[in-house]
Structure formats: C-alpha cells, structure tokens
C-alpha cells in the first residue's frame, strides 16, 4: 500500500497510457511535465538529491512498465538536468563567481557534486524553470510548423507516411501560403494514412493516397519526404512506424531528401542493440493482417504484426525540431545539451 501511495502519480500515468486515454506523444509529454511539477511543489524532498532520486525511481518504474514509450522518460530526464543546472547556478551565484577556464580544465572529473546541500531558493527557481519548459513544450508544435515555408516550396510534391499530428500541422501551415501536392502512403495494415489524407484534403491540400507497394514507383516524382517519428535514437536513427524504412531506402535510391519532424522530447539517449523485441519492437494483434474469421488456416500459421521500424541515420537528411534543422550526426550534441551525462544510463 505504501509503495502504491508513493508512486500513485506515475502509476496513474502508466494506466492512462495503457488505457489509451493519452495516445499522442504531445499529451503524454504535457502530462509528464505536470506530474513532475506537482512532485516538486507538493512532494516531500529537502535537497536536490532527494528530488532527483524521487524522479529516478519514477523513471525506473516507468521503464519497467512501458519500455516502448520513451517520451515520459525523456521529459523526466531533461528535468533532472534542469535540477542539476539550477543547483549549480544557485551555488555559483552565491559565492564562487564564474569559474575560470583553467579551473574547468583542471577540475577532477570524479569530483562530481553530490547535490546534497540545501538550497532554499531551489524550489521556486525550479518551478519557474519548469513553467518555461512547459511553454516550450506547448509551443514546440507551432514552432516546428512555422519552419514549413523554408522547406516546402511552390508546386512541390511531398510524400509522407501514415499519420502524424506534427506533420499534419506542418503541411497545413505551408498550405496557407503555398500550393503543393501531398502523397500519403497508407501504411498497411493499420491504414493510419487514410485518416491523414482525409484531414489534409479537408484543408484543401491536393492529396493522393497510395498503397505501400507503390512507394518506389512514385518516388521518382517526389521532391521531399517529410515524416514524423516515434523516437530519435542516440545515433540519429529512428524508431518509427512500420514501413518507413522501405520509404527511406526508396528515397535514398532517388536521392530525395528525408526530413524528420521531431520534438526535442523525442530525442532519446538510447541505442539499438537488437531488432528483436527485447527493447525495441513490439508485435500487435494479428487481426489487422489476417482476420480471426480466416478459419482453419489460423491453426497452422504464425502471423506477425510489428509496430516499429528502425531507420538507420544515414538515410535521414535532416531533423527539424523547434530550434531549427539539424543533421543526424549532430544528434549526439543535442543529447548532451538536453541530458546530463550521468542521467543517460538509468
């Protein structure tokens, strides 16, 4: 019972995600941020260290329950970094002043801070910082969308796969001032592309929907491929909807640029270790592939319906986040800005 009370917030989050009350990554991100904000303002902690261990316990709990869902873990990991920074600046402003370059170079690496000293202003400054972070999260989608005009030009043909809220908003923003054509790959067997196409068509974008098998044939006339992603891995590779790898390879063959719209919270310090499900993939119900009414055939076959695809970084041309465009090779740099090196392994 004790454990349950301690973790009630994160358990609630897990159950909401499992019951698909929260299904897009933006809602999950906002809920996670609010969870930590509540923890900071109402939780029982004294020093930064206490707070960090509380958050780390929650991260561990979450990873064990939903290893495929990276967004909440990334948000909490970034907040850990915010706490560390606030702690450092809090003490710096008190006494030492700014550190000299010499001091930085000669400092012992092992001499890391233990964050156990009490800092009375920490709580208020953290809450301020989190409020800023929340605004950043909320505006991230719009910030990405406003860059659309830099990438989509008049009379271009854009290809996208399946459904992504960010891509939808991006395309709709561009459509306000430019005329272009979109080809949507339907993304069997879940066919989220159908919904995407109808949404785009409603805002008067000329939309064509094609089956997955027609991707290669259509690729020669496409100018740009714009997709969303589930997670960006540490090497700049993608964990994304099943079927995107094929699209990326076709684009590579025709040297067509692939742009990936990714919020900062999708960047994850994770590497692909094996394509087995171990940490990466997951198989959904076979019903989408072969209906249950197929009869005796089902007694004899195994049907797989994997949810994710891995796209290697060399196939991606550009990541677009709210800060602007970045090459895949630059992801490591973004990661070191987002997360503290000590928090990468949790």
């Amino acid at each position: 019972m004790l454990e349950m009370e301690l973790f009630s917030d994160v358990i609630k989050l897990i159950s909401d995600i499992r019951h698909s009350k929260l299904h897009n990554s933006y809602d999950i991100a906002i809920h996670t941020e609010e969870l930590v904000e509540r923890l900071i303002s109402e939780g029982k902690w004294k020093s930064a260290q206490d707070l960090m261990s509380l958050i780390k316990l929650r991260i561990a709990r979450f990873i064990s329950a939903l290893p495929q869902e990276a967004t909440p873990v990334n948000i909490m990991r970034h907040i850990l970094k915010i706490i560390r920074d606030e702690y450092d600046t809090g003490f710096k402003s008190k006494g030492e002043g700014h550190q000299s370059l010499h001091h930085l170079v000669t400092a012992n690496i092992n001499d890391s801070e233990d964050y156990s000293k009490l800092l009375p202003t920490l709580k208020s400054s953290l809450l301020n910082n989190l409020a800023e972070y929340k605004v950043e999260l909320e505006s991230s989608m719009d910030n990405i969308a406003t860059q659309a005009l830099e990438h989509i030009h008049a009379n271009e043909i854009i290809l996208t796969v399946g459904k992504s809220n960010t891509v939808e908003k991006f395309l709709k923003y561009a459509a306000k001032s430019r005329k272009f054509q979109v080809i949507v790959v339907e993304a069997a067997p879940r066919f989220h592309g159908h919904l995407m196409a109808s949404n785009l068509a409603k805002s008067n974008i000329q939309t064509t929907i094609i089956p997955d098998s027609a991707v290669f044939a259509m690729m020669s006339r496409v100018n740009k491929v714009i997709i969303g992603t589930h997670t960006v891995l540490a090497n700049g590779g993608l964990r994304t909807e099943c079927g995107v790898h094929m699209v990326a390879l076709a684009a590579k063959r025709y040297s067509i640029p692939i742009m990936v719209l990714a919020h900062m919270y999708k960047l994850s310090p994770m590497h692909l270790c094996s394509s087995e499900q171990d940490a990466f993939n997951i198989c959904a119900s076979p019903a989408d592939v072969l209906p249950y009414s197929s009869g005796p055939l089902l007694n004899k076959v195994h049907v797989y319906n994997p949810a994710f695809d891995y796209v290697p970084p060399e196939l991606v041309t550009l990541f677009i986040s709210h800060q602007g465009g970045n090459a895949p090779s630059y992801v490591y740099r973004l990661l070191s800005e987002l997360y503290h090196p000590d928090d990468q392994e949790l």
Partner: peptide, 23 residues
C-alpha cells in the same frame, strides 16, 4: 499468437512489471 493484444505476456497482464521477452 497475440490475439488478445495488449493483454499479452510480454506487456504484462495486470502487473506493472514486464517479465517476458517475445521472440
């Protein structure tokens, strides 16, 4: 064969812990 997805062993049935790997 995962017809009951998401109630499959590797997702944990009602527990928060995941103990199985799907191969």
């Amino acid at each position: 064969h995962r017809w009951l997805y998401p109630l499959v062993p590797d997702m944990g049935i009602s527990s928060q812990q995941r103990s199985y790997i799907h191969l």
